[in-house]
């Protein structure tokens, strides 16, 4: 199995939206390498015929009646917002300038 490189950690950091610092890359590379090396053994045990389990309960599409009911007020919903404007969450620019 290939080891986890510094570059792979940087890539995982980008996918995970973590602006990792340089010194973190080496540290995480060796730790993730050790952890992945240890957990890789899961592929040794189960054959093709074993179905996967994603959840302990066999539930599908649990629905509730579509009824109007009390909910948070706009002020309550926005109470934790880092920034807000005109009863909306105010966020940094999502699209580029050009």
């Amino acid at each position: 199995m290939p080891g986890i490189t510094r570059e792979e950690v940087a890539h995982l950091g980008r996918l995970s939206r973590l602006e990792l610092k340089d010194e973190e890359l080496d540290h995480f590379a060796s730790q993730l390498d050790e952890i992945i090396g240890a957990v890789a053994r899961v592929s040794e045990v189960a054959g093709e015929d074993v179905p996967p389990t994603s959840h302990p309960l066999p539930l599908t599409n649990v629905m509730r009646p579509d009824e109007v009911r009390p909910s948070l007020t706009p002020a309550e919903a926005l109470s934790g917002a880092p920034a807000q404007e005109q009863q909306r969450f105010k966020v940094p620019q999502i699209l580029g300038e050009d």
Binding site: I36, V39, A40, V42, S43, V45, A46, V50, P51, P52, T53, S54
Partner: peptide, 11 residues
């Protein structure tokens, strides 16, 4: 990884 782990969960 994830797929095998889910099978182990079944076992």
């Amino acid at each position: 990884y994830y797929g095998s782990a889910q099978k182990v969960r079944t076992l």
